[in-house]
Design a binder for these strands. Structure first.
Length: 300
DNA sequence: CACCCGTGGCT
DNA sequence: TAGCCAAGGGT
């Protein structure tokens, strides 16, 4: 299925394209700190750039170092998270800041292995921060990279639902030997996936590697693999948890249970969601049936 | 490994 | 319009 394009050809085309097409994002600027890059990577997990940027700016202004965030309450992190979604990420970011302050002298650890040990940091984020913030030569594989390589190298419209061994090998083998080049390669491949080789309507006419792309050359055959799992929303716990947390974010004083009850007529689900929010450390129960965002420093 | 976890814009 | 989808991680 492969077009026989050499790694060097791909590198050259993609890097040249990135040099002129890259977005000017604040966490990509040379003066951005490792902490700024770290925060951006966590915020960007499953959340589009346009929604992240204003919140990121606010966080950087308010908490310019890990110690600044660690010194504040986890509840303030959750409040400042706003509507980015998956608010447990705010809690983990706060916990990571505490870990950096306690175990890393207030700095972002520089190696992939140390980063992986931090809360909220998985395979992707560890590799991304290690290379984007510290120049370590890593293999960065996110949803964009997976889709671009599925098309360009393998000739398939979409990557499999979850990463395969073969896929990771393909990505690793394409990483340039030079660390500085590898760093730009990773961000460029992600940018290509975000701006040109998008999931819905790829702009192949604007693609720097269209003539080298196995999927393009094969006539852009439709995806045949297993269906992707749709995400239900209406009536789910996630929806109600979101509504409950939004009410708590909006209030700077404890919220009585009665106010939360108005958000759903389903008492069973309401209690389940409230309990799970407390268990997650996103909500702190107070005496008298009142609730607030967590003020204690020990939330998970 | 399958499932859960928010939110909103785009096709 | 109703899905589909987004720089994933934790359990």
């Amino acid at each position: 299925m492969n077009t026989g394009a050499s790694p060097e050809q791909l590198h050259h085309r993609v890097l040249d394209w990135y040099a002129v097409a890259a977005r000017d994002l604040p966490w990509r600027r040379p003066d951005c700190t490792p902490w700024g890059i770290f925060v951006s990577e966590v915020m960007l997990q499953q959340t589009p750039v346009v929604r992240v940027e204003p919140v990121w700016r606010e966080w950087m202004s308010r908490w310019p170092t890990p110690a600044d965030l660690a010194a504040d309450s986890p509840g303030e992190a959750v409040r400042a998270w706003g509507r980015l979604g998956y608010p447990r990420r705010a809690l983990r970011l706060h916990a990571a800041a505490v870990a950096m302050t306690d175990r890393h002298a207030g700095t972002v650890p520089a190696t992939e292995a140390e980063l992986l040990a931090l809360p909220g940091v998985g395979t992707y984020t560890a590799a991304a921060v290690a290379t984007f913030a510290f120049g370590e030569r890593t293999t960065v594989v996110d949803t964009n990279v997976r889709r671009v390589l599925a098309r360009v190298v393998t000739g398939q419209e979409y990557a499999a639902p979850s990463p395969t061994r073969a896929e990771l090998t393909v990505a690793a083998d394409l990483v340039p030997a030079d660390a500085a080049t590898a760093r730009t390669w990773s961000v460029a491949l992600m940018e290509l996936g975000a701006l040109v080789c998008s999931a819905r309507s790829p702009r192949c006419s604007a693609c720097p590697v269209a003539d080298l792309c196995a999927w393009q050359v094969a006539g852009r055959p439709a995806y045949r693999g297993p269906a992707r799992k749709g995400q239900a929303w209406e009536g789910t716990d996630r929806q109600l948890r979101g509504a409950l947390l939004a009410a708590l974010r909006a209030s700077h004083t404890p919220v009585p249970r009665s106010a939360l009850e108005s958000l759903s007529d389903n008492e069973i689900q309401r209690e389940r969601c409230l309990d799970s929010l407390v268990a997650d450390g996103l909500v702190e129960p107070l005496a008298g049936g009142r609730y607030r965002l967590p003020a204690s420093r020990e939330a998970s």
